[in-house]
Design a protein around this nucleic acid. Structure first.
Lengths: 197, 197
DNA sequence: GCCGAACTTGACCGTACGGTCAAGTTCGCG
DNA sequence: CGCGAACTTGACCGTACGGTCAAGTTCGGC
């Protein structure tokens, strides 16, 4: 789609489509949700959809990219001005968990997007940025002797994994308090099972 | 489907359908893979599919359930005769990682199945069994004072999360050595980042 | 008040989907 | 051999999908 000129009215309509589609995709899945479902749900004609998006796929990728950008911004804001690299990791994790709590639907979309090659590329790109951010802090912490010297990328992936599963189970299946979940994620990431070997 | 009587030939055909469908579902996704794709790929008529399965959905759920059972058996075999609960956790995790390495396609199917309500029920059931197994060992370890006293379910979920993400990234995107990945997963699970606080 | 760009409508198109079924073939067994 | 159950075929069905488009409406700027 060659970016259209949008009036305020158009921008609002576009945002409305994105919001409603996100909701439906998260609730029913990407494939089971048809373009007809989306426009009918909003009570508009089908042409409206194709005025703002060139395809269902394009809309989905747009949702993913916007969400990834938003998540990263949130994490960066959370660690602004903090020098201690270990603390930066912790604050980044907390911010990520809280973002997931507020955007449960987007988290579900992320999980689906990873499973289909069409969207996996976009997901990997965004994910590797977040992992890269974490790796930077972890490297710094290791250099400063604050953390034992282990593969920082593996550590970052571990953090990602704990966050994914805990947010899924605790937010999606139960309705746990976000702060409590953030504590659980941070605890596990910092100390794991706490086994001394 | 009211379980049909199968001759050896029939059992083989059924297994062939399951194997090929698993491959295609994992490669292209569940929805993008049509029943026609599956039967065409095997060079058989469409009726063959519906002789063995009452629907595409039923086949998929069957694949999931069989896989979950197989994974659990593998883990149970791995910890057979081991008394130390911490060691049981570690061996279970290693077995899980190695199973994922050998069944990358099934792992991908698991990830998709979690994202669609139709299959999420079946997935949660199987997953909660595995988590329950781990929780038992963790509780025992805590009682014995081998691990600090923390919510065992959260710990089990943490393990699950680390396993999921590391197997995805290291097996799917790169072709890492399974044993090495198992080490990374176990390390992270046992000690996390290794931060002393 | 008018013009063009922004926006909206909904009938329509080709296709491909999941699933059915009447008919035919293979095969083990008595 | 022969018969019934197991298995296979592929044309066919209704539907619903993603996407198009000619036509009409709204609206801001001049």
């Amino acid at each position: 789609m060659t970016a259209r000129k949008l009036t305020p009215r158009g921008r609002e309509r576009r945002a409305q489509l994105i919001a409603y589609a996100t909701e439906r995709f998260a609730a029913d899945g990407y494939h089971p949700t048809s373009v007809a479902d989306i426009v009918d749900g909003l009570g508009v004609g089908k042409g409206v959809f194709y005025w703002y998006f060139s395809s269902k796929e394009e809309l989905f990728i747009e949702i993913l990219r916007t969400a990834q950008r938003d998540l990263r911004r949130r994490q960066q804001r959370a660690i602004e001005g903090v020098e201690d690299p270990v603390r930066r990791v912790e604050l980044g994790v907390r911010a990520g968990v809280l973002w997931m709590a507020e955007h449960n639907d987007l988290r579900r979309l992320f999980e689906f997007a990873r499973t289909e090659e069409t969207f996996a590329r976009a997901m990997r790109a965004g994910q590797s940025v977040l992992v890269g951010d974490a790796v930077d802090h972890l490297k710094a912490a290791i250099v400063e002797g604050r953390l034992p010297d282990r593969d920082p990328e593996a550590l970052a992936l571990g953090i990602l994994g704990v966050t994914n599963v805990m947010t899924t189970v605790y937010f999606d299946e139960r309705r746990e308090d976000p702060e409590h979940v953030a504590d659980l994620v941070v605890d596990f990431c910092m100390e794991g099972l706490g086994a001394r070997r």
